[in-house]
Amino acid sequence: MKNTPSVEEHLEIYRKMLLVRHLEEGLGALHKEGRTRGPIHRCDGQEAVGVAATAVLEAGDKVATTHRGHAVYIGKGMNPYPVIAEIFGRATGACAGRAGHMLVADADKGVIGGNAIVGAGIPAAAGMALSMQVLGQKNVAMCVFGDGAAQTGICHEAMNMAGLWKLPVVFVLEHNQFGLTVPSDVQSPVEDLSVRAAGYAMPAEIVDGNDAVAVYRAVSSMVDRARRGEGPGMVECKTYRLEGFSTSDMGGYQKPEDIASWKERDPLLVSRKALLGEVGENRLAAIEAAAKAEVDAAFATALSDPMPEFSIDENCNPYSEAL
């Protein structure tokens, strides 16, 4: 089938999803011990969206994501170590401890970046695509955004211009059913938000967001046409937020039976099952052990890394001479 990932590509997606899952579980454990700082937004169960969508991209392509962006950071090529060090505010973090987990960026990898203003990633990706178009580059910008962001006014403005100018941007809607605690059906009159794409003259496809291969195929075809200059596209990935809004979420509004049924379709299980027949248990076990070891080592190193030192940012000096 066209745009299907090769076995090796799928294995790499599986490996990165494992990295993200160990990252999220490690953060959960450290949060319980009181060793994390500030809210942390986990993406357990949604790894296939961020990882498989970005697996399609080339090094020169750019991605903007949400405050729940760990899968995108790892998917677009960042290692767990600088991400974890950033989450723990270390000098060795991807942004030297200035950004925190919601705003991680690695410009060289095209991750620019996490964004904690819901909806802001949509015009961000459109702006990157505008820049690519003006400069005549053959790159693509991607936005991974949620069903909450789809309700913002700026979503309409940005998608309208993307469609109008045929910007090389792909909108990946990570539909995880909740905007903070409010379920999607209380926020929108339509269940499938991608029906709105028609209003911007862009194609859209709905896929199982827990099936990495399905996500990859759909995003890949949208990226290809965007790269050809045919304009933006949208992929709506249906998934489910297993771990609540953030570490500060008291819970109680998600149905236990929903959580249980989505856990049965955990994207890691879906991919493992598909890959088992292709490569066998031993190869998978080796990948799994290596992923766990990599994340454990990253946590150990990051937690013993030095804290940054404060200094005033002279770029922000309100006076033209230092005083």
């Binding site: 620019i112 015009p123 505008l130 820049s131 700026i154 211009m161």
Partner: peptide, 12 residues
Amino acid sequence: ALTAMAVTAAMT
């Protein structure tokens, strides 16, 4: 959105 797009266009 125009202003938000100017921001990311500028950084790319």
